[in-house]
């Protein structure tokens, strides 16, 4: 399956299908529409998701 063909990936928290409007990029952040957990794209071929890292003290602009 190519990246272009895969339009959803499974949420690792609640197993819901998370849709993509366009092919996702590595490290991109998405939110699960079901459980609202913030997720990170950890592989793109195939697209797989993992919980996004927690915000660290020095994160920001």
């Amino acid at each position: 399956m190519t990246v272009q063909e895969q339009t959803t990936a499974r949420c690792p928290e609640c197993a819901a299908d998370v849709p993509f409007a366009e092919p996702p990029r590595l490290s991109e952040l998405v939110e699960c529409g079901e459980c609202q957990v913030e997720l990170e794209v950890v592989t793109v071929q195939p697209v797989t998701l993992a919980p996004a890292p927690e915000v660290e003290e020095d994160w920001g602009e």
């Binding site: 490290s27 991109e28 952040l29 990170e40």
Partner: peptide, 10 residues
């Protein structure tokens, strides 16, 4: 260079 690809970075 990123460790978290925000919409701006994309």
């Amino acid at each position: 260079l990123t460790s978290r690809l925000r919409v701006d970075d994309k």
